[in-house]
């Protein structure tokens, strides 16, 4: 996960690198560490190091890591010739390496040669049938060919073996959301919250899914998870605050004309508290957009 401090650091370094202020290698290391996808910048500045023999040899053994990073970035930017050259260099240095074998299969994928890539992955799997990365690549390949149901099938099979892989659970949840299969997505997010209960982003995503499904019970649960997100972020999650407002007004509408107990569920204090927090945040950070917020809140009949 990327924390607030790391995000600020990354943005500062990115600014510096883009304006030619140096620190390229530090930036590339940070991108690798945080696993963020900044392919275009990585490609541009990684190549500038690789093209300079002095800088390149100064890296020592890290040189090969950089080749790999640039190769993947190049595939992401469709600069297939660059990727091919990087992989060729790696191949020369490490013949017979499985890791380079994976890169070659990735290149086949980037070229759109699905059958060849599939064959390459199958032969890699024969050597090591429990290689998680390759199983995941098979899922990604199905997704990239526009077959989400096949991807789901692969992922479910994968998760039966590697149940603790939260990245895979997250991917499955995202695929389900993209197919509007919210009940299944909610299950995946439940699993994710169980594995990493302190990460507010999963609580937030779960609440979003529950709110989208709708219904009184789900809305109340969604509000609980939005509240948990606020608790874990110290009230710095604008999305969760807005979620509380939306849930509150939806619950109030659904429970209209019901008995007293149900009416209490609307908890109007919670809504108005969230609205006050939102107004304060907007006043501080974007005073020009305060009007938009107040009119939106008014349409929800809060404040």
């Amino acid at each position: 996960m990327v924390t607030k401090t790391e995000e600020t650091q990354l943005n500062e370094l990115e600014n510096q690198v883009e304006n030619g202020g140096g620190g390229v290698w530090e930036y590339l290391c940070l991108v690798r560490k945080l696993k963020v996808r900044r392919s275009e910048i990585v490609l541009k500045h990684g190549l500038s190091i690789l093209n300079d023999p002095g800088k390149r040899s100064a890296l020592g053994p890290d040189e090969w890591t950089l080749y790999e990073q640039v190769a993947i970035a190049a595939m992401d930017c469709q600069s297939l010739a660059v990727a091919q050259n990087c992989i060729k260099v790696l191949q020369k240095k490490f013949p017979e390496s499985k890791r380079v074998g994976k890169q070659e299969a990735l290149l086949l994928e980037a070229k759109g040669m699905w059958e060849e890539a599939e064959k390459a992955y199958t032969s890699l799997l024969e050597d090591n049938p429990l290689d998680q990365v390759i199983h995941k690549r098979k899922v990604a390949m199905a997704k990239s060919q526009g077959k989400p149901s096949l991807a789901i099938e692969h992922l479910n099979k994968y998760l039966e073996v590697f149940m603790a892989d939260h990245d895979a659970w997250r991917e499955l949840a995202e695929i389900y959301v993209s197919l509007q299969m919210y009940k299944q997505a909610a299950f995946c997010y439940e699993e994710l919250i169980l594995t990493q209960p302190t990460l507010p982003l999963y609580h937030l995503a779960y609440a979003d899914v529950l709110y989208t499904i709708g219904g009184l019970e789900n809305l109340v649960a969604a509000r609980k998870y939005y509240a948990a997100t606020i608790d874990l972020t110290g009230g710095k999650s604008t999305r969760a605050l807005l979620g509380i407002c939306l849930c509150g007004s939806a619950i109030a509408q659904l429970s209209k004309g019901r008995n007293k107990e149900d009416k209490d569920m609307a908890a109007p204090e919670l809504q108005s508290l969230a609205a006050t927090a939102l107004e304060k945040e907007y006043k501080q950070k974007a005073p020009a957009k305060l009007n938009l917020l107040t009119s939106a809140l008014r349409s929800l009949k809060i404040s």
Binding site: K4, T5, K35, I72, C77, Q145, E171, K236
Partner: peptide
């Protein structure tokens, strides 16, 4: 958990599931 050092603002991009068949290929 809510301090700047500990508060997660985004998840890492799932690089194991990265696909290259995206709209970026139309914009070299």
């Amino acid at each position: 958990p809510d301090s700047d050092e500990n508060r997660a603002v985004s998840l890492p991009d799932n690089s194991d599931f990265m696909i290259f068949n995206h709209r970026g290929r139309l914009f070299p």
